[in-house]
Amino acid sequence: MTVTQQFLLDSYRAAQHGAPQPPAPGRHDWRTVRELRDHRSFEAVVHERPAHGRLRLALARLFGTGGAAH
Rank of each mutant, 00 (worst) to 15 (best):
M1L: 08
V3Y: 00
T4F: 08
Q5D: 06
Q5T: 09
Q5S: 15
Q6W: 01
F7E: 01
L8D: 04
L8F: 11
L9R: 11
L9K: 10
D10R: 11
D10C: 03
S11K: 05
Y12F: 11
A14W: 07
A15R: 13
Q16I: 04
H17Y: 08
G18Q: 05
G18P: 04
G18T: 04
G18Y: 00
A19L: 15
Q21V: 15
A24Y: 04
P25M: 09
P25G: 02
G26D: 02
R27Q: 00
R27P: 00
D29W: 08
W30G: 05
R31A: 08
R31M: 07
T32E: 15
T32I: 15
V33Q: 07
R37V: 00
H39K: 09
R40P: 03
S41Y: 04
F42C: 08
A44Y: 01
V46M: 14
R49C: 06
H52Q: 14
H52S: 11
G53T: 11
G53H: 11
G53I: 13
R54D: 01
L55W: 09
R56Y: 09
A58L: 08
L59E: 06
A60W: 00
R61G: 15
R61S: 13
R61P: 00
L62Y: 04
F63Y: 11
G64F: 10
T65V: 03
G66Q: 10
H70G: 15
